[in-house]
Simulated scan of single mutants.
Amino acid sequence: MSNSPKINDSTWTKSTFSDHGNACVEVRIHNDTVLIRDSKFAGDPSLQPIIAVPVALWSDFLSTVSDDSSGAGRTELGIPRVEHDPATGTTTLIDAVETTLVYTAEEWRAFLDGVRHDQFALA
């Protein structure tokens, strides 16, 4: 059972397991894609890196991240590659055009906890 609203097109959504929203994986729906961004980005909002996953592949992406295996993803289909760096504890998402989002271990853990609690299902 979910303990937060599902993702939708009106607002960016983060896991309720995020540390008071200070830094987290954020997602929202836009047309036929689910957008992913990093809340730590501090630059010009028009330059913020965002990865788009087709709505039709969103559940496949969530399955990929739930498997928690490094290198997983199908960028040619629109599912970002997931790379874990054991030395730094970071997790990086990389899309087909090499857009990258780097998350701390805590941010990624909060996102995975949200995925496991069905917080990122489509509305």
Rank of each mutant, 00 (worst) to 15 (best):
D38K: 07
L77P: 00
T104L: 09
F41K: 04
E83H: 11
N3L: 15
H30Y: 12
R74P: 08
S63A: 14
D44V: 00
C24K: 09
N31D: 14
T88I: 00
K14N: 11
S69H: 10
V55G: 00
L35N: 08
V97W: 04
S2K: 11
N22T: 15
F41W: 12
I50R: 12
F120G: 01
R116W: 06
L35K: 09
F17E: 09
I51C: 03
S46H: 11
A123S: 14
M1I: 01
T88R: 12
N3I: 11
A105T: 08
T99E: 09
S70E: 10
I79L: 04
A87H: 10
P45G: 03
T88V: 01
K40Y: 04
V65L: 06
W58F: 02
L77Q: 14
V34S: 01
P49R: 10
D9V: 06
S70N: 07
R116Y: 06
H20E: 13
P86L: 10
N22S: 11
S4D: 08
D113Q: 14
I50P: 04
T90S: 12
A87L: 12
G114Q: 03
S66A: 15
E106D: 13
F111S: 00
T91E: 04
I51E: 05
A123L: 10
A96W: 11
I51W: 03
R81L: 08
L77T: 06
E107H: 09
R28D: 07
I79Q: 02
G89M: 03
V65W: 02
V25M: 08
D19Q: 14
I36Q: 01
G71E: 09
C24W: 02
F120A: 02
N3S: 12
S59N: 14
V27E: 12
S69D: 12
D44W: 02
Y103F: 15
S15N: 07
H84D: 06
P49Y: 03
A23I: 07
D19F: 08
T64C: 15
D38Q: 07
P80T: 05
S59E: 15
A42F: 07
N3G: 09
V53A: 01
N22H: 13
P80M: 05
A121G: 12
D19P: 03
T11Y: 14
D32H: 08
E83V: 13
A56T: 14
S70C: 04
T91N: 07
L122K: 13
L47I: 11
W58I: 00
V55M: 13
V25N: 05
I36T: 01
A56P: 09
A110H: 05
A52P: 05
A110Y: 01
I7C: 00
L122A: 05
E26R: 09
L93I: 03
